[in-house]
């Protein structure tokens, strides 16, 4: 059972638990035999090379995808077994930040953040306004409320999307590649926001990324995915000094190792010498 340094006294306080989950599109297996425990109040970073099924994992937790084997529990309930209405009720307790920010392009920044409030709370407009301004203030963009999404930089768009994700005061936030394509300043802001929001709002955060440095800076606990399964997990320091060759290759970013530099191919020499013969 993993436990976070924030919550050492209650190691069993698990918000999300992934229990022997496998997933595939048709015959193609993407994830197999995944086991994870996400402790309440912690920032859990899931790392792995591109295309290893990290985003799929978020889809499974959010109930957008159904596991072909195994189960995902959110606060003790099986996510895949929920009916649509119950699933929607569950999703009000989680926020998600997409890599593309996914702001609604026909609404202003203000209306984007107000969207979940207006959809679900039926609050008077004056209260919605105050709540939206509070959320925007948290991400430092209160002044940008009248801009359209097209007028925002990538980093700003992601902060607006973050304000929208916390609009309903969720218990869990899922971040899909929050560091991809950001300039250093935006990167610093994002790191600070993830950590501060997590601690200030008593959230639980799942961050999916392939950036080792940033991941290590905010993680309480890390999982490393490879070959569709978990190849290592532990606190960031343990992971950085892991003796496992696969973990070490990813954490240090070595070009060759257990994951070979060359895509599987026939013997180089044989193929070159054979080239003339094969064409005729």
């Amino acid at each position: 059972m993993p436990h976070s340094p924030h919550n050492p006294a209650r190691p069993a306080d698990t918000l999300v638990s992934v229990d022997n989950v496998s997933f595939g599109y048709g015959p193609r297996t993407i994830l197999s035999g995944l086991d994870m425990q996400i402790t309440r109040g912690s920032v859990v970073v899931v790392m792995g090379p591109s295309g290893c099924g990290k985003s799929t994992l978020l889809g499974l937790i959010g109930g957008r995808l159904a596991a072909s084997e195994g189960r995902v529990f959110f606060d003790g309930g099986d996510v895949a077994a929920l009916r649509r209405r119950e699933l929607f009720a569950l999703r009000k307790r989680m926020g998600m930040l997409f890599q593309s920010s996914a702001l609604l392009t026909d609404l202003s920044v203000f209306d984007n953040v107000a969207f979940p409030l207006r959809e679900h709370c039926g609050l008077p407009e004056s209260l919605v306004r105050n709540l939206v301004l509070m959320k925007l203030h948290m991400v430092g963009l209160r002044g940008a409320r009248d801009l359209r999404p097209a007028e925002l930089s990538g980093g700003m768009a992601r902060r607006v999307a973050l304000a929208r994700a916390i609009a309903l005061d969720p218990e869990l936030i899922l971040y899909d590649e929050p560091f991809a394509g950001l300039d250093p300043v935006s990167l610093g802001v994002t790191l600070k926001l993830i950590r501060e929001l997590n601690d200030a709002l008593r959230l639980t955060s799942v961050v999916v990324t392939h950036d080792v440095d940033e991941g290590c800076r905010i993680a309480d606990y890390m999982y490393l995915l490879g070959r569709g399964t978990i190849i290592g997990h532990g606190a960031p320091q343990e992971m950085l000094h892991s003796g496992d060759p696969e973990v070490a290759q990813f954490m240090q970013g070595m070009p060759d190792g257990p994951v070979p530099f060359h895509y599987p191919a026939p013997d180089y020499r044989a193929e070159l010498l054979d080239a003339g013969g094969a064409r005729s």
Binding site: G62, R64, F88, A89, R91, K92, M94, G95, M96, F98, Q99, S100, A102, L103, L104, T105, F115, P116, E119, H120, A161, R164, L168, L174
Partner: peptide, 13 residues
């Protein structure tokens, strides 16, 4: 651009 998926995650059909 994931806007539809985002709506779904915000519990809006």
């Amino acid at each position: 651009t994931d806007q539809l998926a985002a709506m779904e995650m915000m519990a809006t059909d």
